[in-house]
Design a protein around this nucleic acid. Structure first.
Lengths: 240, 240
DNA sequence: GCGTTTAATTGACTTCAGTCAATCTGAGTG
DNA sequence: CACTCAGATTGACTGAAGTCAATTAAACGC
């Protein structure tokens, strides 16, 4: 049963996510329309925003939390294509191409997302050419990113790709501990980490142990303590 | 030295490539503008349309031939991201995001392409909102395709990906020989095939031998004779 | 046509990552 | 608390693909 959040947020007009998404292109009047027709909801881990194969009848705006886009092929092989954090528009491709969703949007951390339905999006797109441009920008950005990951997947080892993921997480979520050394709390399970780089959980376990043995970092459950960030970045194939 | 083709083609108005690209959105007047400002040229294998890192100061429309988009990373590892055949618009991303090219467009077969420079594209985009929509469609299509390849690269073996490439080529270029069995002439070298699936040439050689031994097909230089297309598609991970 | 260069193949060997099966851990539940 | 169940780890083994080096075959220039 869909539970609507009590909206203590003040709505789209003051939603910080709006300013990082396509919806920054809207004028005041359009923001009111968006605000009235959106459906805001809380999602728990394990739920989905939509499933692969569902009709793309609108799109989602992620206000907080973490969503994973998972693709499953005919043989049941499953991949996490990428993660979406607060301020992402999700499911826009299926909507814009008028087709079914190509992947499943899984809720990985407790999340708050707004659903904006087909007719609203259409109205806004018709009255605001800037909005279309923003979607184009978004698509091009996603394209660059995926192409980059694709090239990495073809040329780099699992170890490199694993360290690359950690480096990206560190950029977004990294902290310094009391001693001033870089630290990270993983936002996802190790199994999901494995799905993200196309590995098996066993391989990730072994990978971590070897990287620990090499002295680059120490993993304690979901806590990662980096000992040699330069080596991490070098092995991740990132120019330092 | 850039050699312009003697344009026996009748120009953009009757160019068949135009109707498969974004430029189908243009009205007659705009086609005339496009026709006057485009620069048509013949390219030999080994040349490039542009190099990774070059400024994206316009875009290319491929009339005939075959172009490969190659990305090279900081460590010199090289990948063929994908191939473009006649009727492709090439280099639109760098142009639209106003950034440098992310990859190099290599000429793989003798090709004829038109270059359309920045100012012309801008004029057309400003006067024709439909054109922007077409670019959006194109970007979304590329995104789906690359995401699909990405997922394949993470879940499937080299053998599957190799057979998948062959199956795609067969769809586009396949023939039937005198005995009626499916045949294909590879449009690219085996080395390029390797770059396309992220393998080494040695591995492709061995792959081919094993696939021949399994009785799926026979390779003679660039000629491929399929003996068991069902098995090819099955092993390629394509639903039959 | 010959000689040079580039592409393709083959063999021996190493390394990386998947598979299968057993065990261990921790969170949640009755 | 004991039980269950999913996640995580470990070991032994297999198979897939890369590396290095040598050789053969094709393509290109002159």
């Amino acid at each position: 049963m869909p539970k609507l959040c009590s909206d203590s947020s003040g709505g789209c007009a003051v939603c910080p996510s709006r300013l990082t998404t396509e919806w920054q292109a809207l004028n005041d009047e359009q923001v009111v329309l968006l605000d009235q027709s959106k459906r805001r909801r809380f999602y728990s881990p394990g739920e989905t925003l939509y499933m692969q194969g569902d009709e793309g009848d609108g799109l989602f705006c992620l206000q907080s939390g973490l969503i994973g886009l998972r693709q499953i092929d005919e043989n049941g092989k499953s991949v996490l294509l990428r993660l979406c954090q607060s301020g992402s528009t999700i499911g826009y491709r299926a909507y814009l191409t008028n087709s079914d969703h190509f992947n499943t949007a899984e809720v990985l951390s407790p999340s708050v997302a707004c659903f904006i339905e087909r007719t609203t999006v259409r109205k806004l797109l018709e009255n605001n050419p800037l909005l279309g441009e923003k979607f184009l920008e978004h698509a091009l950005e996603d394209l660059s990113m995926v192409e980059g990951e694709y090239a990495r997947s073809l040329t780099m080892t699992m170890r490199s790709r694993f360290l690359h993921v950690l480096a990206v997480f560190y950029e977004q979520l990294g902290q310094r501990d009391e001693k001033g050394s870089p630290t990270l709390v993983l936002p996802i399970k190790k199994k999901e980490l494995a799905d993200l780089i196309g590995a098996k959980p066993e391989s990730v376990s072994r990978l971590i142990r070897r990287i620990e043995d090499d002295g680059l970092l120490k993993v304690d459950d979901r806590h990662i303590h980096f000992h040699d960030m330069d080596a991490v970045l070098r092995d991740a194939g990132v120019a330092i």
